[in-house]
Design a binder for these strands. Structure first.
Lengths: 299, 299
DNA sequence: GCCTGGGAAAGACCATGTTTCTTGCCTCAG
DNA sequence: CTGAGGCAAGAAACATGGTCTTTCCCAGGC
C-alpha cells in the first residue's frame, strides 16, 4: 500500500467535516470504507492524523499540518492537469528554438516580433547552445527549430536545412592595425598574424573552418588567445592582441571597434539557415519559419 | 478511475527512460501493466502524453509539460509527509496561544523568551482574538493555552484556570482632567463623566463589568465613544473626550499620557490567568505554563 | 527480400486492494 | 435505562492492478 491522491482527498474531506460519516456521504462512499482508508493512510505514514471520540474526530498536531500540506498537493495536482491540457488543446503552446546569438543578431529579434504578433499564445523558449547540442536537441524532439551554420550532410539526416543567407568570411583587425589601411588582405599575409579564436573544445566546427581556409597557405596558423565570448573576442582584437576570421554579420556588433576586411583568394561564404525536423512540425514551428523568411526577404 | 500518485510515479519513470520496458524493470512491474497504467492515465486526462514508435516512446508537448508538473507534485507530496512526520515525532511541534495584548503586555514577552530558550524546536503561534474565540478555540483543540480574564464558571467546563495575577481596576483620565489632582475618585463622581469603552458587540464581558461596578451608583453610565483599539482608547482619553475603566496593568502602556486613579469604594480586582484544557496537554504546553509562572514569581 | 531482435499493445486470467453491508462497541442526552 | 449517533471490525462482493502469452511493428543485418 502506498499513499495515493485518493487518500489525501479522503483525509481532507474528513478533516474538514470533522466527522467520518458526513464526509462519506459527501464523497459518495460508505463510512467503513472511508474509515479504513484513513486508517490505512495512518498505518502507512506511521503516525495518527486523527483522534477519535464518540461523536466526532479531531485532528492531531501532525494531522493539522498534514491537512494544510494535503490541500497544497491536491491543488498542485489539479494545476498540473490544467497546464498540460492547455498545451494539448493548443490554447497554450511552446516553441523551443536553438540559436547562436552572434549569427542571428540581425534576424532573430524581428522574426520573434513578427511571430508573436501573429501567435501571442505561444511561449517561445530560446536555447543558447552549441551546434552539436542543437542538432541533438532536434533529433530528440527537445527543439523544434535551430538557427545555425549549415552542418555536414550526415548530421542533417531526418532534418531539413533552409538557407536564409550567405555570410562572407572577413578578417577582423583593430582600426590601427597595419592591415586596416588595405582594401583587401591576402591569405598568405594574414596567416602570419597571431590569431584569436574560441576554444577548440567548445567550437570544433570553427577550428575546422580555420584549418580549411588556410589549408593552402605556407606557414602554420598560430592561436594566441582563446576568449570565451564575442565581447572579449572583440576586445582582444581591438587591443591589438591579434586578428580573427569572422562572418560579415558580426560587423554590426563590432561597430567602429573593428575593421572587417575581405580576404583574397576569397574563402567560401558561410551558409546560415534554419534547421527543423522533416516531419512532425507543429503549426507554431511552421509559422515561425515563415516569419523568419519574411523578415529576410523584406531587407 | 481517477488520477493517483501511482500514475504520476509511473509516467515520470517512463518519460525519463523514454522506454516502457526499461522503466518497468526499474519499477519492478511488468511491461504490459505499466503500458496499461499510462494508457489509463491518458484516457483519464483526455490527451496523449506519449507518442509511440517501434523502438521507444517520446513525449508530446503536453507530455513534456506534464512531466515537469508531475515531478513537482510528487516532490510536494513527499514534503507533506516529511512535515507532518516532523510534528508527530516531536522534532518539530507547534503551540497555539490565545492572548489579549493589553492584559499580557508585561508577561507574554518574557514568558516566550524563557520558553523558547528551553524548547527552541517548538513553533509558537500567537492568536490575538476575543475571549469568546479563545474559549471556543480551547474547547475545539485549536488553542492549547489562552491568557484571559477569569471567565464565568460555565465557560470553564473541561478547562483549567490558573490565576497568574490580580489586576486592580482604575479610572483612567487625562493628565489635565479635574480628577487628576485627586488621590482617589468616588464611583458616584466618576459615573457622571462621559465614558469611553470598546464596543458592546465585540467586548460584552467588559460592558458587563462596567455595569457591575456602577450598579449601585445613582445615575446612568453614558458611553460617549467606542474606539477600536487600545491606542485610540488612550488618545480619546488624553484628548479629554471622556474617562475609562481599565486595569492597572495598562499604566505601563499609557505612560505619562494618562493618569490612573484608584476608585472608592474599590471594585473587585480582575483575576487574570492562564486557561488550558484539563486533559491532553502537550509537553510544550506544560513547559510554557511553567515558564509563565516563573516569570511572574520572579518579579 | 528474409530473418532476427527489441519494444509496445491486446487479451485472458489471477491477485490484490477497495468498497459495501452488517454488526458491535462506545458515548451522550433525555 | 433507552435510543441515537458515530467509529471500527469482519465477511463478502466488486473493481482495478498486475502477470503471462501472443501479436504487431519497425529497424538492422545478412
Amino acid at each position: 500500500m502506498r499513499m495515493e491522491l485518493r487518500h489525501l482527498r479522503y483525509f481532507v474531506a474528513v478533516a474538514e467535516a470533522e466527522n467520518v460519516s458526513r464526509a462519506a456521504l459527501k464523497l459518495h462512499v460508505s463510512q467503513p470504507a472511508l474509515s479504513r482508508q484513513i486508517r490505512d493512510l495512518e498505518d502507512e505514514l506511521g503516525f495518527l492524523l486523527l483522534e477519535r471520540s464518540a461523536k466526532s474526530v479531531r485532528l492531531t498536531d501532525a494531522g493539522r499540518v498534514f491537512l494544510t500540506e494535503s490541500c497544497a498537493v491536491l491543488q498542485r495536482a489539479e494545476d498540473a492537469v490544467k497546464a498540460a491540457r492547455a498545451v494539448a488543446t493548443g490554447s497554450r503552446s511552446e516553441l523551443h528554438i536553438g540559436y547562436a546569438p552572434t549569427l542571428t543578431a540581425r534576424i532573430l529579434p524581428p522574426a520573434l516580433r513578427a511571430f508573436q504578433t501573429g501567435m501571442p499564445g505561444v511561449r517561445v523558449n530560446l536555447h543558447d547552445v552549441s551546434t552539436e547540442e542543437m542538432l541533438a536537441g532536434l533529433h530528440e524532439g527537445r527543439l523544434q527549430i535551430a538557427f545555425l551554420v549549415r552542418p555536414r550532410a550526415a548530421a542533417l539526416r531526418g532534418l531539413r536545412f533552409e538557407e536564409l543567407m550567405r555570410d562572407p568570411l572577413r578578417l577582423a583587425v583593430a582600426p590601427n592595425h597595419p592591415f586596416a589601411r588595405r582594401r583587401v588582405v591576402a591569405l598568405a599575409d594574414a596567416v602570419r598574424e597571431p590569431f584569436i579564436a574560441y576554444s577548440r573544445k567548445d567550437y570544433p566546427d570553427y577550428h575546422e573552418l580555420l584549418a580549411s581556409v588556410f589549408s593552402a597557405t605556407k606557414g602554420r596558423l598560430h592561436i594566441a588567445e582563446e576568449p570565451d565570448g564575442v565581447s572579449s573576442l572583440i576586445s582582444a582584437i581591438e587591443a591589438g592582441n591579434g586578428v580573427a576570421l569572422m562572418p560579415d554579420s558580426l560587423a554590426c556588433i563590432a561597430g567602429a571597434r573593428l575593421k572587417l576586411l575581405p580576404l583574397t583568394p576569397a574563402p567560401k561564404s558561410l551558409s546560415i539557415g534554419i534547421v527543423s525536423p522533416q516531419t512532425g512540425r507543429t503549426t507554431a514551428a511552421e509559422s515561425f519559419l515563415k516569419c523568419a523568411k519574411e523578415v529576410l526577404s523584406g531587407k
